[in-house]
Design a protein around this nucleic acid. Sequence first.
DNA 1: TCTGGGGTCCTAGGACCC
DNA 2: TCTGGGGTCCTAGGACCC
Length: 435
Amino acid sequence: MPSAPFMLESFPRAILHLDGDAFFASVEQAVHPELKGRPVVTGKERGIIACASLEAKALGIRRGVPLFAARRRHPELVVLPSDYETYSLYSRRMFAIMRRYTPSVEEYSIDEGFADLSGLRRVFHASYQAIARRMQADIQKELDITAAVGLSLSKSLAKLASKFRKPAGLTAVRGRHIHLFLQHIPLEKVWGFGHNTVHLLTRYGLKTAYDFAERPAIWAQRLLGKIGGELWRELRGEAVYPICPEEKSAPASISKCKTFTAPSANREFIAAMLIRNLESAFIKLRRHRLRARAIAVILRERDFSETGLEAALSRATAATHEAVPLAKALFARVFQDGKEYRATTIILGKLEPDELAQPDLFEDRLRIDKLAQVSQAVDAVNERFGKHTLSLGSCLFLERHRQTERDERPVRKAALLPGETRRRRLAIPRLFIKV
DNA sequence: TCTGGGGTCCTAGGACCC
DNA sequence: TCTGGGGTCCTAGGACCC
């Protein structure tokens, strides 16, 4: 296949993508060294593998697989519940190490980040690869976990490069080698090409990322819209997507979804599950010091099809009780008798900072203040004694269905560095309040 | 691969207004 | 109460990500 380097008009950048290897499982092994060398998976609490250690991956175990299936074939698996507090602690430490080299670090997810190294060769008297290697070495030495790194001219290319040699690899793709690199990359590996897009591109006879990048720009743009045009440029080495070093901004929406193991047609039960989701979502909303102006209710049927409705609240609120009537009304319109459902979802949307909320002259101040106080008191109790210790009377129904499960977490926790904090939880019986 | 949970962004089309 | 063209806002739904 004839191929020539892609010509770049803008000044090339040095973008690094760092990806923690089997992050959750590796952190567990770092905190519990006795688990090293053993096949470890996390996700016990959901019954689905959230992360598989390198040893587990070697056995063919992948994330998303039901635990019982993996366990049946591999009884030696070490199955752990997720411990997000510790994972995010390690995540913060990992990004802190990256930021020693440049402030231009983007925390893309808990285990992945980007950094813009452009112009740093002179500062460090080292090549970009050498800087990347130091970063990797720091992480391995200080955190006892490994990370794969990709280095190239755009985020999309750097992300492809970091996946090229895993675990712990370093792959640099120079401008003049992009066209060769892309010939090894199947379409589905490209960040932003999902199932549907790959299927569409395949119908046009494309197989690799190179096939896509080698088409005319206008073709990509017309076929795949804005994203298509952007990815086309990114894959040719133009840094279209900037590194966003800003703190993760407030979320645009907060959702809570819960699947019940056996699909159910029981209206009362499903409604109770939904209100439980609503509570969880509002707890998270208040933790972010936000108010919601809209809520959506979605029900997932046995066949995985979904129906839902969204509606605006009469005012932005952070009090669960204010949203209950609307949630129930939406539920009544979405729910169909006789249909079996397997999951409920609540989405809080149109979020705004809590402190901006202006009281409306005609509102019932007393009632609103009271409800706000109730929510605050509930949060305080739950914060101290565990989520859902106090919940709405509407959830009482769930108590009859609740299965008691105890976590068998290993007792040891990661040691904290000065200035780091961790929240503690206490288990006490659940209470219910009726409003 | 029979499928968990939490997000973001884009686009088309309708409602409504001049 | 016949009708062009354009703008904005909103919602539903698709697609994708980790």
